[in-house]
């Protein structure tokens, strides 16, 4: 049974509550009985070596694994108290509320403006003024507006990697989600772009609950309120960042933090 170190008494602001989550792909048991919860307006990082299941876990939170044929999931993921694997849940509506940013910057082969407007359009918003205003706002939030304001109609793929990733963030927040999932968002970026994105994440907790998968301990330390450590599909430890990074309870966490994996 993985240890869950956040104090049980304070569960007021819980937004995501994961209970006994198991995930199988064919005969592989990828996630083993995960129990943890995330609080509103916090930044949580999930650490672990490659292949430990942190990305898979992140994708169970917005049901992106639904498309993986041959996968099976047991347990519950409660978001605002409602199990998202319940039959009555509309995946489209669920994902409007949970933005996701991927490891590879993956803007659409469209203009910068259309990339951000895409999320609004697919949810049926037609009011042009509203879209223009929203796109502008999202680009400002993601610290990209000043660099692209004169070329909003240029293709998004003409931007640099770091700018593309910020565009993807702008795109993800356009639908006004309450949770933002980030799957190693800085893995392919240079140190300066990385730093900009980390600052963004820090500023985002005012509006969103941010859950970041990462294998970079320094970066995680800079942004975390809570941190968890995954190893071979198990959640080894999950606690407040302060104690996680300075006084890890588990030997394996300590080994990872001191880079012994």
């Amino acid at each position: 049974m993985p240890e869950n170190n956040t104090s049980e008494k304070d569960r007021d602001n819980v937004i995501v509550d994961v209970k006994n989550l198991n995930f199988y792909y064919g005969s592989y048991h990828l996630l083993k009985n995960i129990n943890l919860y995330f609080k509103k307006n916090s930044v949580c990082t999930l650490l672990g070596p490659s292949g430990c299941g942190k990305s898979t876990f992140l994708r169970t939170l917005n049901r992106m694994n639904d498309y993986t044929e041959g996968s099976k999931l047991t347990g519950e993921v409660l978001i605002n108290g409602k199990n998202i694997y319940d039959r009555s849940v509309d995946v489209v509506e669920l994902r409007r509320d949970i933005g996701m940013v991927f490891q590879n910057p993956n803007p659409f082969p469209k203009s910068i403006f259309d990339n951000v407007a895409f999320g609004l359009k697919i949810h049926g918003i037609k009011d042009k003024d509203f879209i223009v205003e929203r796109v502008e706002k999202c680009l400002k939030y993601s610290a990209l507006y000043d660099q692209v304001k004169d070329k909003l109609n240029k293709p998004a793929l003409s931007l640099s990697g770091g700018q593309q990733q910020r565009l993807c963030i702008a795109r993800a927040i356009a639908t006004n989600p309450s949770i933002l999932l980030m799957d190693e968002p800085t893995a392919y970026l240079d140190p300066i772009s990385t730093s900009v994105i980390l600052d963004l994440i820090n500023s985002f907790k005012k509006y969103y609950t941010v859950i970041v998968a990462s294998h970079n301990i320094q970066q995680a330390g800079r942004i975390s309120d809570y941190s968890g450590f995954f190893l071979d599909g198990e959640l080894i430890e999950f606690s407040e960042a302060g104690s996680f990074f300075t006084r890890p309870k588990d030997k394996r966490t300590e080994d990872f933090i001191t880079s012994r994996y």
Binding site: N62, M64, Y67, V91, V92, E93, L94, R95, R96, G99, M100, F102, N104, N106, P107, F108, P109, F118, G119, I122, H123, C168, R171, A172, T175
Partner: peptide, 18 residues
Amino acid sequence: IPASYVEGALAMGATKWQ
């Protein structure tokens, strides 16, 4: 079509066709 494009759109709540 690169899977990352489609995945990016799906994650925003697009239907497969969108």
